[in-house]
Structures are given as C-alpha cells and as structure tokens.
Design a binder for these strands. Structure first.
Lengths: 340, 340
DNA sequence: TTGAAAGCGTTACCAA
DNA sequence: TTGGTAACGCTTTCAA
C-alpha cells in the first residue's frame, strides 16, 4: 500500500536508518554526528536534529554491526576459572579490569566450560577479542594460542604460576611463596617441614609449585619436606592432628592462611603446642590470622609491576607480533608473628 | 595481475569465503556443512572437503557477523559489581553461569564503570544481550531498564537485596539475615543489641537491609538496636572495644563472620567475656568461625529455588513481556554455637 | 546437491 | 555540508 520509506515497526530495535529518517538526513550523517567525526563539518542545526531523533527513539548503536564494519574489536577477554586462585589473583584481575576500561577497552569475563581447553579457545576466538588474558589451566595448548592469533587476537597473555609457550606471561610464581615460607622456617631452626596440600580440586595448579618452592629451599639446607594432603574440613584436620606426632615434623607450611588456621586449631585441640612443638606458617596474610593466638605467621604477596598490568596489556596489543614476554608480578615476603 | 579470485592474504583472518574457495564450493555450502543444517542434503564427500578446508585454514566463524545476520544473540550479561556481596552471592553467580552455559547461552560478565547506572546500561545495550542479570546498585533506574528492553533484551533481572520496579527480581532479602540474627539473640534474653555497620564502601547495600531486619525483629520485643560503624581493621575494632562498656550493650550482630571475628577478638582483648558479658553472632557460617573459642554463632544463608536460577532466566527469556516476577532465593537460619 | 544473491547495521570513501 | 554507496562475514531463500 504505502509508498513511503519503510516504517520502523513498533517492536523492533531502532537503527541508525530510523534515526536518519526521523531527522530527515542520511544514515551517513547520523553516523558522523553520533560519533563526533571531526573530519567532516556538520551544521549545528543538523547535529541537534540528529541528536534529538536518536534520543527520542532511544537509539543505541549495534556493537556487532560496528565490529563487523571496523574489522576488529577492542574487547579484552578475561576467561574466568574455578581454580582456587587466592586474593592476590583476584586483586590483579580487578586491577586489570579497571585499568583496561580506562584505556577504553571492553573488558569481558567469559566463563569456561572447562571440558576442553581448545574448545574454550574456539569459543573465545569467535568473539574476535583483541587480547585474551587467560588463567593458566585454561589455554595451555599452543594449538589454542595459535587459533586465537589467527582469529585476530593481538595478544594472548597467560596469568598464573608458570609461563606457557608461545604466549606472553604474567607470572605469579608460586614457588617463591613456598621457598619464602620454608626459608623462614629454616632460619628459625626447624628442619622437618610438612607442607599442606589441599585436596579440593582446583588447588593443584597453585599448591604444586608452592611445594616445589619449599623443596628447593629445603634442598640446600639438608632439611626434609613432607607433603600432607588435607581437606578443608574440621574432620580432616583433626585426623591429621591425631597422627601428627607419628610424623615427627617440627614445622608446617600450610598452603595458605585458611588451611593454616584450620590446622593450627586442630593441632592445639590435640594438645600440640604451637609454635613450641610445631611451628605453623600460612600465606596470604589474611587479617583473620592476626586474630588467632598465637598470631599466625604468614607469607605476604605483593604485586610488583614496572607498569600497571593494564598498560602492559595495552602495549602488547599495540606492538603485536613481538617475542613472548615474561613479567613476574609477585614478590613474597614472610611476615613473622607468633605461630612460627 | 592475477585474474584469479581474491587470495586470502597471509595475515588475514580466514572467512567462510576462504574455506569455500579452498574446498571448491560456495559459501552457502560451507555454512550448511559447518552448521549441520539438516534441511539440506550435502554429499559426504563435499562435507569432508569443507571440513578439511576449515581445519586447514583454522577457520573460526565470526560471532559478530552471525549476530548481525541472525538479528539476535544468546548472550546473557552478568554485570559485575565491586559491592561486597558475600559468599552466597558468589555462589549463585557461579550457579547461574554454569547453568546458563548448559542451556547454550553465552555468559559474559561485564565490569561496570560505576560512574552512572544509565551509562552502564547503554554499554550493555550495545551488545544486544538477550538477558541481563544485574546486581542491585547497577541498574536501578526505569530508564536503563527501558533502554535494555528497546535494545532487544528479553529479560532484565535484578539480583540483590531488593526488587526494582519494572524488572524481574531475584531477591536475596538481607532483612531476613538481620531479623534472624536478632531473633536468635532475643530468644536468649539479650535486649540491648549492637549491629555492626561496615564502613568500607560498597557494603551499604547489604548492611542497611540487615540493620532494618534487626530493627524489625527488635521492635516487637521491646529491645533496642544500636548501629555501630566499624572498619575492617584491628585498630578500629580495638577502639570500639575500648568504649564498649559505655555503650551498655549485651549482644552484637556483627554484619558477617569476618567482622564478628574481628570484633570478638577485640572484645576479648579488652577483657570483655564472650558470651557472658556480650554475645556475638555473625553471618555466612564460615568455617573459620568454628575455629575460634568460643565458637562463633552465625546465620547460615541457603539458596531455596523451586527451579535452578538458570532455568528461571531461560523461562523469562522465552516468555518475554510477562509481568515482572519476584523470586526469593534466600532462607536464613541461625546456627547457635558458643559465642551467643 | 549446489550456487547466486540479498540483507543484517555500521562506517568510510567519494561525489555532489 | 551532505548523501549515495559499497563493504565487513554470515545465513538463508530461491533458483538451477
């Protein structure tokens, strides 16, 4: 019937064409105005008409269309993991997120099915992110990294205890934590050192390197290291405490403060005096550790970065194709308190 | 020079056209094969050729192009907040994420500048999500909700202490927590009850309704409620403990277990016996609270859902345009231990 | 069983 | 100062 240009149907999402029609200009002009394109002069009256039309229709540009046209995105993907990562990890993610947003990136956290690392990588590649910052354990394969590269990612960056071949690495070397705790215990004369290994799934990626660090520190000193599996439950801790004296240990590095507090309570309940009979040290320097008696010694982890991590990602994106870089983010320091 | 069809340049991202060229078929055929389109019969040999070509090139479809063509996404946006939300909140987010992924949605967490709720809503709208599950404090305005609707969102759902007009609500009623803790204290004969209010920014959204719940429970019993600001620092707790006796309180609901543990230690250090002189109850039922002496009483929050929250979101998406629904997710229950 | 072509919403180039 | 038009990569309808 109607010979008029297509009407925007009621329930449809308004497009720039709708705005153009309402303002009586072309789609190009709408684009110029709304993007404040400075290479082109648009009269103030036109600008106003376009802005009003956009406001009236509640026009919001379509990111996918823009992406398609631009040929690239400014999306940085932060795949989330259910690996137990600790407060320092969380802190750096928050830092990354706010920093990248300030640099005008769209930061998107994307959960991972976790079934298969390459499947994950493929799902991410479909989104054509300009960069991916992946927790280790999620994109371990060179395959996945290559796929992301081919899909246009300017930077693939791993974040975790170890670097991964072919990708840039933000390394939070957990061995430092273990060796720092162990050195602290050795300096105080303890020689037979237990290392708590959480049995909960997802802790291995952090616990193993902490153990390795403890071993490294002990090796030079002729001390011995004994891994001790523990679940985060009172029963598990009580059972361990019950057979504690048969282990013949004089100190324990308890993976982190949570496990340390759990174990220390169980030891005390079993009549084992801390630190006289067994010294205990945790990690993460939680406030709560300071509330126990004896106060819990701990390992504090600090972020040491020449430049903020977000700036680093930005640089890697802008100078793509350079050799994989490694950046160590963690400095560990023992905080002696009363428990060991 | 060459009259051949366009060659895929070396550094470029392979497209379905490249796959078609390599396999010697049309783009349409590529699409049929890779999407397992069953309305069309493709010979096995062609299928194989296409699959091999795709594999060889490392072809990954372009989500934005697909979205544009389809006219809609299957993206559920979970804006992240820096509001301190507690373990139950985290748990439900993880549940939502895994559940939605099973339902074949693309789950994306998107950080919020936090400057202005409507700016946030606009940024989300550009992504054309099919649903948004927003923590309260992020999309409070009817304006933002309308914008998301216009941008094609089938469901806008808030997740937090209170429902918000015009959106579906997953309500985690914090007043229940406060009233539950207070009732517990009242039943044990305490009448002058302090309520710890964290001073850290971002806690207000949760602390205020907990206080309101405490007030409500106290009102009927002729008890009095005294809000007590506290920073999560030993000094702040010590200062509060120092003037504790001047407050004339006989019990305290400490917002959560973290604050409860901090305060309880400070009270004990100031020579105030718990629970004889002052009863203490926290919330969240953390493992660590059980390790203190006296063991910390707490309020446990459980998720009660007729159907998993992800299924609920799915239903709201599929039956869009229905009246806003309210679903209460939280059931609170006092866990009496030794501290009060 | 396969191919040609249209069109999704945007932006950029070129012409007017 | 503004408008026409082509192109981004994909899916789908229609035609062969």
């Amino acid at each position: 019937m109607s010979q008029l240009p297509k009407q925007p149907s009621a329930g449809a999402v308004p497009t720039s064409a709708d705005v153009a029609r309402l303002a009586g200009v072309s789609r190009a002009t709408v684009s110029y105005v709304l993007n404040n394109n400075s290479t082109v002069r648009i009269s103030d009256s036109t600008r106003r008409r376009v802005r009003e039309a956009a406001g009236e229709l509640g026009y919001v540009p379509h990111a996918a269309a823009r992406t398609l046209r631009a040929g690239h995105t400014r999306m940085v993907l932060l795949p989330t993991t259910n690996h137990a990562a600790g407060p320092v990890h969380h802190h750096i993610l928050r830092e990354l997120e706010s920093g990248l947003r300030r640099l005008d990136y769209t930061v998107v956290q994307h959960g991972s099915p976790g079934t298969c690392a390459d499947e994950d990588a493929r799902a991410w590649a479909e989104l054509r992110p300009v960069a991916v910052v992946a927790p280790v354990g999620i994109v371990p394969t060179a395959q996945g990294i290559a796929m992301l590269r081919r899909a246009g990612a300017k930077a693939v960056i791993t974040l975790g205890p170890q670097p991964v071949d072919g990708a840039h690495a933000l390394v939070m070397d957990q061995r430092e934590v273990g060796s720092c705790a162990t050195t602290h215990l050795l300096e105080r004369g303890w020689r037979r050192i237990g290392v708590i290994m959480p049995e909960e799934p997802g802790f291995a990626a952090f616990a193993e390197p902490r153990l390795a660090g403890a071993r490294r520190a002990a090796a030079g000193a002729g001390a011995c290291i004994e891994p001790l599996p523990l679940r985060y439950e009172e029963e598990s801790a009580a059972a361990l405490a019950l057979r504690w004296r048969t282990l013949g240990l004089d100190a324990v590095f308890a993976y982190n403060d949570d496990y340390a507090m759990l174990l220390m309570r169980a030891l005390q309940d079993a009549g084992i005096e801390v630190p006289r009979e067994t010294a205990v040290i945790g990690a993460d320097d939680l406030m709560l550790g300071r509330l126990l008696r004896p106060r819990l010694s701990s390992v504090r982890m600090e972020l040491v970065t020449a430049q903020p991590p977000a700036d680093l990602v930005d640089r890697l994106v802008q100078h793509a194709g350079t050799e994989p870089e490694r950046h160590d983010l963690l400095r560990a320091r023992a905080i002696p308190r009363e428990s060991g």
